[in-house]
Structures are given as structure tokens and as C-alpha cells.
């Protein structure tokens, strides 16, 4: 069973044609990075996969089921965890309450285990979402997605606006999720960090797939990395 197969996807916002014939695959246990400049269509791709911005044509197949027109909650119930852009923490709920929102799919993840992974969240358990720092919100968004016990995890810019030390921690967590057997699609502006942990890379440009290949190969191609992945590829220097 292929965790994720996106084929010939065309997605619109009103009249603007955002995604044009996007084709992406994530194999079992694979960590795939989806890169590209701002506005290239990365977030829209994830939103189309999880049903928030359904595609107008093309197909999304998750674990061999065609989910293109499904509502988001049915897609999630298949075991698709999603960490949205900007984290979308519920600001009026406490940390603990935020963790009680997801569907309780059976699996190894419990609130206690999320607290073990992010002890900071346990300290902040009775604080409201709006009181959290960016790093804490990111931990909460990831923890919340894990409580669904996903087998496919979609992350939209988990490093956005975070201090380097926290970014490093996040990427370690993501890499460890893959080791647990999760298949992961990672959208990132932080190109070097993403390429360092990914198996394969897609680059979106203007709503189309402009590059597809193994991460190791992409890492060698400095020029392509700069030209396709945008200026932010230079922002990352000390990640190893």
C-alpha cells in the first residue's frame, strides 16, 4: 500500500490556478521533502491532500483509497496527521485541551507520551494556547497530530519563525518519527535542513513540479538548490 499518491492535481483559489498537474508520491517509511519558493504551491498541495482546499481535477490516493473529494475528517481518520502552516493552535483552549481534540485512533501515542517527548508541554499543560511561545506552539501542533496515531504525517514548515536550537530539536523529532515507520511529507523553506533528513525531494515552482529526485543527488547540486529552492537555502548554515 502506497501511503500517498498525488496525480495530475489541479487546484484553484477562486479563479487563480494554483496547482498545475502536480504529481507526488510518498512511499512506505519514506521521508519526502517538498521544497520551493514562497507562493510555489507547497501549502496548497498539502491542503488539497487533506481536503481543506479540494482539487478541481486529478486524484489523491491515500493507502490505496481515492480520497480526492473526501471531507477532511475522513481523510484524517485513515491515519493522516497534519501540522498546518502557522500551527493553528486553538488559542482559547489549554495545552491539555488542545491535545484532547484529535480523534482517538488506536496506537502507541498517548497524551503522556507526547509529554515525554516534549516535557515543556507538560509544564505548560494548563496554559492557554495563546500564551505559548512559537516553539511551544510548534511542539503542541506536532504532538496534537501525533495523537491521531498517524501512519502518514504531513508537516507544513515546522521550522518557521523558530530559534535554531528548537529547529534542530524539531528535525530530530521528525527524523525519529520516520524511524518509527511513519511516512512523512515535509514542506520546508529551510532547504538544507530538510534535504539533510529527506530520502527524496520535490521542488515546486509556480504550481508545477520542477524537480524530482533523491535527496543525496539534490544536495550535490548547489546551483539547482539555490535557483529552485529560493534564497532561504542560504539561511541554513550550521545544521549537520
Amino acid at each position: 500500500m502506497t501511503p500517498l499518491k498525488v496525480d495530475g492535481l489541479h487546484t484553484y483559489y477562486g479563479k487563480s490556478h494554483i496547482l498545475q498537474d502536480v504529481k507526488i508520491e510518498v512511499g512506505e517509511g519514506e521521508l519526502v521533502a517538498l521544497l520551493g519558493r514562497n507562493g510555489a504551491g507547497k501549502t496548497t498541495t498539502l491542503r488539497s491532500i487533506v481536503g481543506l482546499t479540494p482539487a478541481r481535477s486529478g486524484s489523491v490516493t491515500i493507502f490505496d483509497r481515492v480520497t480526492t473529494d473526501w471531507p477532511s475528517y475522513r481523510i484524517a481518520a485513515l491515519g493522516v496527521g497534519y501540522v498546518p502552516e502557522g500551527r493553528r493552535i486553538f488559542p482559547n483552549l489549554t495545552v491539555e485541551e488542545n491535545l484532547q481534540v484529535p480523534l482517538e485512533r488506536p496506537g502507541p501515542w498517548t497524551i503522556q507520551r507526547v509529554y515525554d517527548l516534549f516535557p515543556r508541554l507538560k509544564e505548560r499543560r494548563s496554559n492557554k494556547g495563546r500564551q505559548l511561545s512559537g516553539g511551544e506552539q510548534e511542539m503542541l501542533a506536532v504532538g496534537r497530530a501525533l495523537l491521531l496515531n498517524p501512519t502518514l504525517l504531513l508537516l507544513d514548515e515546522p521550522s518557521q519563525g523558530l530559534a535554531p536550537l528548537i529547529v534542530r530539536h524539531m528535525f530530530e523529532v521528525i527524523a525519529s518519527m520516520r524511524k518509527e515507520g511513519m511516512s512523512i511529507l515535509l514542506v520546508e523553506q529551510n532547504v538544507r535542513a530538510a534535504v539533510a533528513i529527506a530520502d527524496r525531494v520535490y521542488v515546486l515552482d509556480d504550481g508545477k513540479v520542477a524537480y524530482e529526485g533523491p535527496a543525496a543527488e539534490f544536495a550535490q547540486d548547489e546551483e539547482r538548490m539555490r535557483s529552485l529552492a529560493g534564497a532561504s537555502s542560504e539561511a541554513w548554515e550550521d545544521f549537520s
Binding site: 487533506v50 471531507p71 484524517a76 497534519y82 486553538f90 482559547n92 481534540v101 484529535p102 491521531l148
Partner: peptide, 22 residues
């Protein structure tokens, strides 16, 4: 109740977390 309160502010995100919002 927690899901109702969450949905009051952001129903899309509640749905994405697997809760049948219908």
C-alpha cells in the same frame, strides 16, 4: 465540549484532526 469550543474558533483544524464535524 472541548471539541465544540475548539470548533468555534477553527472548525477546519478540528476536522483535520479526524473529528467528524458534521
Amino acid at each position: 465540549g472541548i471539541r465544540i469550543r475548539a470548533g468555534t474558533l477553527d472548525l477546519d483544524t478540528v476536522s483535520v484532526l479526524g473529528v467528524n464535524v458534521r
